[in-house]
Amino acid sequence: MAEIKIDAKCLQCPGPIVQLFNAVKSAQSGDVIVVEATDRGFYKDVQAWCKKTGNELLSLEDGDVIVARVKKA
């Protein structure tokens, strides 16, 4: 199972959630996508997005850089 890294730091609108969405689309089930983002809104967005789409949020770190690990369902 692959781990896909996305550097979504310093992105403005539409932001990291769209990058994550596209990465999940082209990934295999079970792949882990790691997103690094600086957009403060991403911290809440990624939680809401995973809940709605059924992908699993393995971990989420807050800070100047937010790091989310998401496993594709």
Binding site: P14, I17, F21, N22
Partner: peptide, 10 residues
Amino acid sequence: VREEAEYLVG
């Protein structure tokens, strides 16, 4: 008019 991914968040 946002991307689908953003729309899904809420």
